[in-house]
Nucleic acid binder design. Sequence first.
DNA 1: AGTGAAATCATCCGATCGTATGAGTCCTTT
DNA 2: AAAGGACTCATACGATCGGATGATTTCACT
Lengths: 150, 150
Amino acid sequence: MTKTVILFGISMALLLALMKGFEYMFFTKDMALEVYIGIVGVFCTLLGSWIGWKLTRPKVSPGSQEVETPAENQTGNGFFVSNDYGLSPREHEVLVLIAKGLSYQEIADQLFVSITTVKTHASNIFSKMDVQRRTQAVMLAQKTGLLPPT
Amino acid sequence: MTKTVILFGISMALLLALMKGFEYMFFTKDMALEVYIGIVGVFCTLLGSWIGWKLTRPKVSPGSQEVETPAENQTGNGFFVSNDYGLSPREHEVLVLIAKGLSYQEIADQLFVSITTVKTHASNIFSKMDVQRRTQAVMLAQKTGLLPPT
DNA sequence: AGTGAAATCATCCGATCGTATGAGTCCTTT
DNA sequence: AAAGGACTCATACGATCGGATGATTTCACT
């Protein structure tokens, strides 16, 4: 977090320095204003994208999904099941998507990670739940109320 | 995704228009370059942050890939109407074993048929239930009460 | 400063899955 | 007898899965 802010400052300083340098090199007249704006716009957009990505990284997403750290999960009936097999939040997330019937590639697209990562998570899930196939994991998760209702 | 790109374009156009308007209002000389850059920088940083956040957040529901329970399968009082999707007895048998997490080979061994037969049945099951993967079939069968409780 | 958990990504490989095509038998219905 | 459904089996092929191995980065905790 602190590093992010520092890097942001450094980037801005670098940008300004570059702009100042370019100013004396190429842009002797004010006709280059559009180029100026373009450079700044593209740069700051990329920088902002990186910042936005960085800031939304720790939390899941501020919109639709809550962070589920189910030491105890609640089923639709109000019963609590306290068996999460030691799954991490990310692994639980992957498990839910697997239960939806998505392939690894589709899960990877949805979570914006590579397919390798999804497979790694899945392997850890199967290992923790002591199953060999995704179908078994889905059934087991269903039984133990690990999956969201509906 | 497409919406994001479109909104980005609109925002950029809006920004340029605003800049052009400001240009004739306040900034008659190029001495206001720093202000210009500041505005563009802040704006594009915010825009980029929004874009990064938008692109990073996982999709809520792709809709086309998820298993949907047909409405006629479940009544309001919680009872399940028998919906076997036109599955033959043998196909239903295979479906149950698939839901147990068995592989085609294991199912074939248990039913004393070849693995080819099991795969044929499975293909017909998926076709009748209108799903692509065994996981989806299992979830759908679970929802519609097609599987025996265990 | 070091440690460990979590998340990420890569490459390789064998096993399994899902589909397509074609064909044969048995049984019921027309 | 003919037609059709259910069950059986084979071959082939691309896609996907699951595991193994190794690596990096980030973060929290000590």
